[in-house]
């Protein structure tokens, strides 16, 4: 039996992990994904397979992906309160960050150094996103139609961004029924 004090400590450490990641990853939600993955997997709190399954679920819901992911991971680690603490950890740094910056924006937006620094962060974000793509592709079980569906989806979304969600839904359903049918036969 775990006592209440150690349970509270675990919740606080979940809060702290997500607070730290959210507070230090400039470059938006996508940059946070590999940071969360590394921190949780290195601490052996979750396996790679579990992480990418939850990422797929987080992506299929509306809302910022890092926020959705924090709810799913928090819940997986420590139930309802885990989800609450993890999602607050993700939201607090951007919330107070923007309020501080909103009062100083004139000072910051003109600076050459800030622009250069952001440009570097942006390049890093592209690198991190390509890593997420690599891991995602590695964790898919491939069948005959997986790659054709992938190429079809990429092409359609690049041609028309408004179709994004419908293409996503279409791919998921086609692949699901294809794989299910394979078993029934």
């Amino acid at each position: 039996m775990t006592n209440i004090a150690s349970k509270n400590r675990e919740l606080l450490s979940i809060f702290y992990i997500f607070l730290k990641i959210s507070g230090l990853t400039l470059g938006g939600g996508y940059a946070m994904i590999p940071a969360i993955e590394r921190n949780l997997i290195n601490k052996k709190l979750i396996t790679e397979k579990e992480f990418f399954n939850l990422l797929s679920i987080a992506q299929s819901m509306p809302g910022p992906i890092a926020f959705n992911l924090s709810i799913l991971l928090g819940r997986k680690l420590r139930g309802f309160w885990g989800a609450v603490f993890a999602s607050f950890g993700v939201i607090i740094p951007p919330f107070f960050g923007i309020i501080i910056v909103a009062s100083l924006i004139q000072v910051n937006s003109g600076s050459v150094y800030v622009a250069k620094f952001l440009n570097g962060c942006y390049i890093a974000t592209v690198g991190l996103t390509s890593y997420v793509l690599y891991k995602m592709m590695k964790n898919i079980n491939y069948n005959k139609i997986t790659m054709p569906l992938f190429l079809f989806g990429v092409l359609f979304i690049i041609l028309n961004k408004n179709l994004t969600f419908f293409v996503f839904l279409f791919l998921v359903l086609i692949n699901y029924f294809y794989e299910k049918r394979g078993i029934d036969c």
Binding site: Y30, F52, N53, L55, S56, I57, Q59, S60, T129, V132, L133, M136, M137, N139, I140, N141, T146, L149, F150, G153, V154, I157, T164, V167, F168, L169, L171, V172, L173, N175, Y176, E179, K180, I183
Partner: peptide
Amino acid sequence: YFINSLALGTAVLVF
């Protein structure tokens, strides 16, 4: 199968 299909859709969005 459902999770695997979501993973495919997600990979497309990440791409």
